[in-house]
Write a protein that binds this DNA or RNA. Structure first.
Lengths: 344, 344
DNA sequence: TTGTATGCGTTATCAG
DNA sequence: CTGATAACGCATACAA
């Protein structure tokens, strides 16, 4: 097996009998190249299996063809979806995706991320929630002059820099669904108060309920942290109280699974005696018994939109990025864990 | 906010009053630099917050400081662990991680991967199972002259190129556990026959059982594909038959969850009437009711080892890579889904 | 429409 | 131990 050196632009130029400038034009799809010349060069490129050296190209044009993905979410069951989605858009345009897992809690988070993007000379950065909600990071991203897109539940940036998931509307839909099932004694387990998604989902839910004249009792709003363990803890608090809700909406599927666990321990039948719902539609939701009614986030679609915006920003200088849709709608998925309230 | 151009090696050289060659030596930790000169240069570097341009460096040294991760496995939690593990080792050495999701089934898989590594000029590639088991890809990797490490359940490459998870031994342990619980009527739901892990887990299980004089009945070995849905299908087949096993071991947690689902539907109590176990210890295992007895794969540790091997290969030319441990041992995690067989 | 010359920020060669 | 100087492969003013 002979170790061939990769063909360079010079090889192509020499063999095609043109200057490298012309080859460069062909590569970059310049319009000012004669039809004849173009095909001639293209043929040589194909024969030599030539593909431009990304590093050299980057060095000369100060572009890296590298996109970054900053994420934290510990139960990022959608990480794979995001990565595939982004690459589906970017891969055949010549971009690669560099990942940067981090910790939302870390005191050096912003600094770390900045070192990451400047060291890698990224052309663009996609930031997932909840890290995406850090204004300090966003400002630094803006200052860096690089393209970036944030995913969030709130439109906390200009249209070209954000893709929002309308968690508020989705939660309102869940509220409507609960109300229509006849539930009135409803509890809500929140996520971390620092997250925008927590606020959106809670307010959306309350708003939705109020349309049916239902109001959440203060002691039936308990603060969770999106973890399974905390879900269990909160569920205990709710289900061991003197008066019990007939339905519990948890800020995510993890906590909803915790509620199922506690209900099972206490011998409370779901959904006969208690309806339970979550948010995310991650793997758990459909596997757990009873399967969870939840809200499905169109993760893949968000990734596609974010990637499209990024490319627009990079190649068309923000002009077109604003045209790309910026909002997606999560949808209600009804499964086994919810039912009409039982007359008691 | 002034947009500062990044300082270059020239700036450092000029200000420090030395040649850029010397600065380069300092950066790369060359030994042949005077102590005085070194500290002088280092000070300027710190003051200017200079960090070398990866692209230029790569162009000159034909190294990219980019590592690639080729994967197919849809389980995102696993993916996150791997990514974090690899970066923990490589990040402060200046490497970044580029991801390449792919489809094991795709006819152009090998070709895609090769285009990926050659286009990105990766210094090294880590391949996760089951893609790691493709010999055609491995050969191509070898031919490319790049460093690479495969993760698998079998030692299908030289020590410097592989990290193996001893699924066979782990399965044998599960067999011992089952036997000690008194089970004799045991069924096994396999993974895809094409995967090495499937064979290892099945053979390990059979070997372990045979130590107790137990043999798997042929009709109690059913072929699954590691999906939840197929798990359900296989479970139906096993549990609706005239004679029922008292224990089912599934090739992964997804399918085990499917077994729980069917058992629940059929009113078969787990673990009272049926013991169920899986493999992986993914999020599902601990969340499901009853929680699953399973085998925990030390994913993080595997990632660390793989990354360490990679770095060794890249920087010390395979010499040291062989010294790094190449095998990890998954461990039995006992939860609620298994119990002593009931005398009937 | 095509070509020439120069620079991008490093590393590497070879002297001193 | 240190320093000029030539690659590295490509893009881009500037010419022609």
């Amino acid at each position: 097996m002979i170790k061939m050196k990769q063909a360079t632009i010079n090889d192509v130029a020499r063999i095609a009998g043109v200057s490298k400038r012309t080859v460069s034009r062909v590569i970059n799809g310049s319009l000012s190249v004669g039809e004849h010349t173009r095909t001639k060069v293209q043929n040589v490129i194909n024969e030599l299996k030539y593909s431009p050296n990304t590093q050299a190209r980057g060095l000369a044009s100060s572009r890296s063809y590298l996109l970054g993905l900053i994420y934290d979410n510990p139960d990022a069951l959608y990480l794979d979806s995001v990565q595939r989605g982004v690459l589906e858009v970017c891969s055949n345009l010549g971009y690669e995706l560099v990942v940067h897992p981090c910790r939302y809690q870390s005191p050096t988070l912003v600094q770390d991320c900045l070192r990451f993007i400047s060291r890698s000379k990224l052309d663009g950065i996609i930031v997932l929630p909840p890290v995406s909600e850090l204004e300090e990071l966003a400002q630094a991203l803006k200052d860096s002059g690089r393209a970036y897109v944030r995913l969030s539940s709130v439109a906390l940036d200009e249209p070209c820099h954000i893709v929002v998931s309308d968690d508020r509307a989705a939660s309102a839909e869940m509220a409507r669904y609960f109300a229509q099932l006849g539930h009135e004694k409803i509890a809500f387990i929140t996520g971390p108060q620092a997250y925008k998604s927590t606020i959106e989902r809670m307010e959306g839910f309350q708003l939705g309920l109020s349309a049916y004249g239902i109001q959440l009792r203060a002691d039936w709003i308990v603060e969770g942290d999106n973890s399974y363990e905390k879900g269990i803890e909160c569920a205990r608090q709710l289900l061991l109280a003197s008066e019990r809700p007939t339905a519990i909406y948890a800020n995510n599927d993890q906590m909803a699974a915790g509620v199922l666990k506690v209900a099972h321990e206490l011998g409370i039948a779901v959904p006969a005696q208690l309806s339970v719902a979550g948010f995310d539609d991650n793997m758990l939701a459909s596997r757990v018994i009873p399967s969870l009614t939840t809200i499905r986030r169109p993760v893949r679609q968000m990734a596609l939109l974010a990637a499209t915006k990024m490319i627009m920003s990079i190649e068309n200088n923000d002009k077109g990025a604003e045209q790309v849709a910026a909002k997606v709608a999560p949808t209600l998925v009804v499964r086994e864990s919810t039912a009409k309230v039982r007359q008691s």
